[in-house]
Design a protein around this nucleic acid. Structure first.
Lengths: 250, 250
DNA sequence: TTACTATTGTCTCATTTTGTAACAATAATA
DNA sequence: TATTATTGTTACAAAATGAGACAATAGTAA
C-alpha cells in the first residue's frame, strides 16, 4: 500500500524541476552493530533502487537533498553529505524506468522526460534506522532497510554508487563526526557509552578497534562531555555516559 | 583576437547538450614556485570567469571534462579530478551572461538557454602553465594565467569555487600524487630533483617543509625511481634525478 | 556476606612515526 | 687548494600509536 503522501507525486510535472539533474541517496542506517541501506522496490519488476529525486526550479541543490531525504525517512535535520556526481552514458537506460512506469499503469511516450538521460548528484546520510519511517515514492511499492552485506540486485550502477559512498564515509568518519552534533541527528541517543561509539566505528569501518586506543583517540578530540555513570544492570563496572559537546561550547 | 577554433562555438546549439548541467574548471598552473589559475576575460564587461562548458548528449561527464580542458589548454592527458557540484539558487544570475553575449553582438531572448539556471560540476586540474597554450572560448576575449594570490574580480561564486578546489587539492595531494604518472601530465618534467618536488608541495600547500622529513616521506612512498645525478653547474653537490615509477612496475 | 565474573578506565611499556638538527660528501668557484 | 652552497644521510628527541596489564566495580551466585 503506497503511502498517501506519495500519490500526489504520480503527477510529477516535468516543468517543476530542473532538467537533466537527479539526486541519488545512499542512506546508511545504523543500529546495534548493523549497517543497512534504504532501498526502494518497484512493483512487478523485481528492481531495487536507491532513493532518488529531482531539484525544483526555485530550490537550492542541498535543500532539495534535505527535502527528498525527509520525504523518504520522515526525519529532519539529518547528517547529509554530497560525495560524487555520476554522469556516464552507461547509466542511461530507459528500459528499467519504462518497466517501472508500466507496472504502475503509466505508458510513457518514448521521449518522456523520466526516460531521458540524467546527471546524478550522489549524497550519503547516516542515521539510526530504528528512528526512520521509510516511505515509498510514487513509483515504488516498498521502501525498506537492507543489510549492507546482503543487498538485493540493484538497478544500473547503484551498487557502485553505494561502494563509493561507503568509501567516502569511511575516509571522512573522524573529520565529519564533529558535524554530527550540528544536526539533531538521531544516530546515537543523546547520551551514549564509549562502547556504543566504538561499536558505531567498528560497524562502519568493518574492523575491530583496540579499546584503549579508541578511548584515548576519542577523548583527545575534545568533542565529548563526560556525564554520570550508566548503571545498566550488567554484572560489571558501570561505564560513563558521554554527550557531544554543543557547538557553542567549542 | 579570438582563436579560430572558437568561432564554431558561437553557434553553440542548445540541442547538442545536456540541459541544466555545466562544468566549471579550476585549472591550477604551477611553475617555479608560482601557482596560477586559468581565467577567461569577457569583452567590454570587465568580468573574469572560470573556464566552463557543457556536456554533449552522447558524451560521458568525465569525457566532457577532458574535452573542454583540452579546448582551453591544448593539452591532453591531464590530471583531472571532480571535487564538488554547486547548485545554489544564488548562483543563477542571468545578467552577467546577458552582458557577455551582448558584448559579442548577440541579443538573447529572455528565455535563452544560456541564461537559465545550471547545476555546475566542479573539476580541478594541475599542470605546468608553461606547457599550455590558453585558448579563449567563443564568448571570451582572453584566456590567461593569473596569480592565485592576486586574482581579479570574479563572476558570481567563482572565487568560492576556487577556494573549495584548493582545499581539496591540498587535502588530496599525497594520495593523488600517485595518479600523476597514470597521465602523461606535463606538471614536472619527466625527471626531476627532490628539490623540484618539494617546491611543488610548498607552493601548493603555501608552507615551508623540512627538507629531511620531506625526503624521507617521499622515498617511503615507493613511487620514485632514482636515476643519475644532475650536474647543474651550481657550486655544490649534485642532486639525484628521480622519476615516477611506471604503473606496471608497482 | 563473600567469592566470582564481565566490563570498564587507566596506566605502562614497546614500537613506530615525525620533528629537528647535525654531519660529511661534493661540484663548482675563487 | 680553500671556500661555498647544496645535498644525502644519520642521529637523537619528541610525539603518536600498538598492545597489553592492572585495579576498580556492579552485578550474580554461593
Amino acid at each position: 500500500m503506497p503511502h498517501p503522501l506519495s500519490q500526489e507525486a504520480v503527477i510529477l510535472n516535468e516543468d517543476d524541476f530542473l532538467p537533466g539533474v537527479a539526486l541519488d541517496f545512499v542512506i546508511f542506517g545504523f543500529h546495534q552493530n548493523q549497517l543497512k541501506i534504504l532501498l526502494l522496490e518497484y512493483s512487478n519488476t523485481a528492481l531495487f533502487a536507491l532513493p532518488a529525486g529531482f531539484v525544483r526550479k526555485s530550490e537550492n541543490l542541498n535543500d532539495a537533498a534535505r527535502r527528498i531525504l525527509t520525504e523518504r525517512t520522515s526525519l529532519t535535520n539529518i547528517y547529509l553529505e554530497q560525495f560524487h556526481t555520476f554522469g556516464d552514458l552507461s547509466r542511461h537506460d530507459a528500459a528499467p524506468m519504462q518497466a517501472i512506469m508500466e507496472a504502475k499503469g503509466i505508458t510513457p511516450t518514448p521521449d518522456h522526460w523520466l526516460l531521458r538521460r540524467f546527471i546524478s548528484v550522489g549524497y550519503y546520510a547516516l542515521i539510526d534506522f530504528t528512528q526512520a519511517i521509510p516511505i515509498p515514492d510514487s513509483l515504488s511499492d516498498t521502501c525498506n532497510w537492507y543489510e549492507l552485506t546482503n543487498l538485493p540486485e540493484l538497478m544500473l550502477d547503484h551498487r557502485a554508487i553505494i561502494q563509493k559512498a561507503l568509501e567516502t564515509l569511511r575516509a571522512d568518519l573522524d573529520r565529519k563526526l564533529v558535524d554530527f552534533n550540528r544536526w539533531a541527528s538521531p544516530l546515537l541517543s543523546d547520551t551514549f557509552t564509549m562502547a556504543d561509539l566504538q561499536s558505531l566505528y567498528e560497524t562502519i569501518l568493518d574492523q575491530k578497534l583496540r579499546r584503549s586506543s579508541f578511548q584515548r583517540k576519542m577523548l583527545s578530540l575534545d568533542m565529548l562531555e563526560r556525564l554520570d555513570k550508566k548503571y545498566s544492570g550488567g554484572a560489571h563496572k558501570a561505564p560513563y555516559l558521554y554527550r557531544f559537546i554543543e557547538q557553542n561550547k567549542l
